[in-house]
């Protein structure tokens, strides 16, 4: 694989919380190529969300480097705001802006950052809403939406920045079971369209069917990574086997 295909390179990243008393990530290294759908699974507290949040520096690593699109974003001199535009993020709890309409939620960043005029942004937002089946919700406030609708809007809000990679932090964990499907469907469609995705998830079905690679984490370490077929059929590490026996 050519090096130009590497979109994200995580190199020996360590992250500590509470002044070093909690080590959430321990010497993690990882590469994500363009077009890949990488799923990160593992038990609660294994560091998978922390690893994902390090990718756009919502958490700043204590050591190690992260390279995005050829730029070392962990450099102190790097303007992370510029790179975050290219990294869409979807949260477990949606984090829609409650004081804005759906449309304003989606157009806020492209317009405020001067990337699009309000008209362009509105047209794009409406097209994206159409794609996720929520065209009629443009003028609603988030409070009027179901969890599944909120999460689809949150995905659209991130897509409106035309990112090169989408980061998902347990996007279906806060949803009622009957709404998980509608969000996963949107994510599957994104994957089919060739979007590079890094997904922290508990949805083993998604990891198996949609993922191009699975990463298993435990106690701050990347324990094992493989293609979904190999990973689920022939897990190598004992910790992976123990985990899979509990969740499958």
């Amino acid at each position: 694989m050519a090096t130009s295909d590497k979109l994200i390179t995580v190199s020996h990243v360590t992250k500590e919380f509470s002044g070093g008393s909690v080590r959430a990530l321990n010497d993690c290294s990882l590469e994500v190529s363009k077009g890949e759908v990488v799923t990160i699974i593992g038990p609660s507290g294994s560091g998978k969300s922390t690893l994902l949040r390090c990718l756009n520096l919502l958490e700043v690593p204590n050591s190690g480097t992260i390279t995005f699109d050829g730029t070392v974003i962990t450099d102190p001199g790097c303007d992370i705001d510029l790179h975050r535009r290219k990294m869409g993020m979807v949260f477990q709890h949606f984090n829609l802006f409650p004081h804005m309409t759906v449309l304003r939620n989606i157009t806020l960043a492209p317009v405020e950052l001067g990337l699009k005029s309000q008209e362009e942004a509105t047209a794009q937002a409406k097209a994206l809403l159409e794609r996720v089946g929520l065209a009629d919700k443009a003028d609603e406030y988030p409070i009027r939406l179901s969890g599944g609708q909120k999460q689809r809007i949150a995905i659209v809000r991130a897509l409106a920045m035309e990112p090169e990679v989408m980061l998902f932090d347990e996007p279906t964990s806060a949803l009622d079971p009957e709404m998980v499907g509608e969000v996963l469907d949107v994510m599957k469609e994104l994957a089919r369209d060739g979007m590079t995705m890094v997904v922290v998830t508990h949805e083993m079905g998604f990891a198996r069917e949609v993922g191009s690679r699975v990463i298993f984490m435990d106690s701050g370490h990347i324990v094992e990574e493989n293609t979904p077929q190999e990973f689920f059929a022939h897990p190598k590490e004992q910790r992976t086997i123990d985990f899979l026996s509990k969740v499958l």
């Binding site: 919502l58 993020m89 949260f91 806020l108 960043a109 405020e112 809000r157």
Partner: peptide
């Protein structure tokens, strides 16, 4: 104001000041 609001705004690439002004303060003032 929920810390996820600032995280969501910053993740979209909004600088801290803009995120504060557009996302956090309107909710805080209410």
């Amino acid at each position: 104001v929920d810390s996820g609001q600032m995280e969501a705004a910053r993740s979209l690439g909004l600088p801290k000041g803009k995120a504060m002004k557009l996302v956090i303060l309107p909710q805080a003032i209410k």
